[in-house]
Amino acid sequence: MTPPMMCVTRSDSPATDMLQRLLTSALIAGAAAGLIAALLQLVFVQPVLLHAELYEGGERTHFAAASDHHHGEEPAPEAVEPQTAPTTEPAAEAGHDHGPEAAHDHGEAAEIPGIGFDAGRDGLSILFSIMVYAGYGLLLVAAMALSENNGNRVTARQGLLWGIAGFVAVQMAPAFGLSPELPGMAAADVNARAIWWVATVIATGIGLWLIAFGKNWAVWAAAILLILAPHIVGAPHPHEFTGPTPPELAAQFAGRAIGVGLAVWTLLGLFAAALWSRGREA
């Protein structure tokens, strides 16, 4: 691994300095990105999540709420009588259970959550958001350093691309198989999903690396196969979708989670590359 030809003079700067440079640029970039992620999530994602929890906990029920909403405006006959929707088991169940309670719920507990701050719960979210993006920052800077060992030069501008690639690897590609989950959504066994998630992230990450740094068609073809493979195998899904959450909320949640992810990852790439390349000049 280390032939005698290697420039010994260069290792004057101790390895610990290099480790420190790697760690500080990754952790500062990650903490900043994590903080921004937490803020964006509190404003755009958390209200949707809290809204969904009302359905998960049964404070709101999908079809009962729909019938309440349409009450004054339009007759919506099929919504008023939930039993006439035989394709949706949860609605039939819910209509059954909550028949007398639905009206009562609507009066007190059915407020749609807005933007708020729950010191305990959201404080933890900020902390864990910083932790997650610090972790992503470390992986990103490690990859940047590895590419520089191979002759690539990472600039702040290039960092934007690194960030977008990271977003594709850890958020977009997994979401292609397992859309961001809203509380209450029906899903397959969590371990099976976690394994698929990790495998997809690794395959996509390696695939993107090969596309970026590969030099011939064989490598690019292998890269495309790697990126496709998890989706051809397919993510684990339940046999039936019986979650109590309305699809409208789930769709909004998925769109927002992915959108926030793209914004934050682009910034993470920019911050990480800017800090990392600044350290190089110093």
């Binding site: 992620a37 994602v45 958001s129 989950e181 989670a257 992915i258």
Partner: peptide, 15 residues
């Protein structure tokens, strides 16, 4: 429980 909201928002498999 502590990481719940972040796990959902970032797209990890959660429950």
């Amino acid at each position: 429980d502590a990481a719940h909201d972040v796990r959902h928002a970032v797209g990890f498999p959660c429950h």
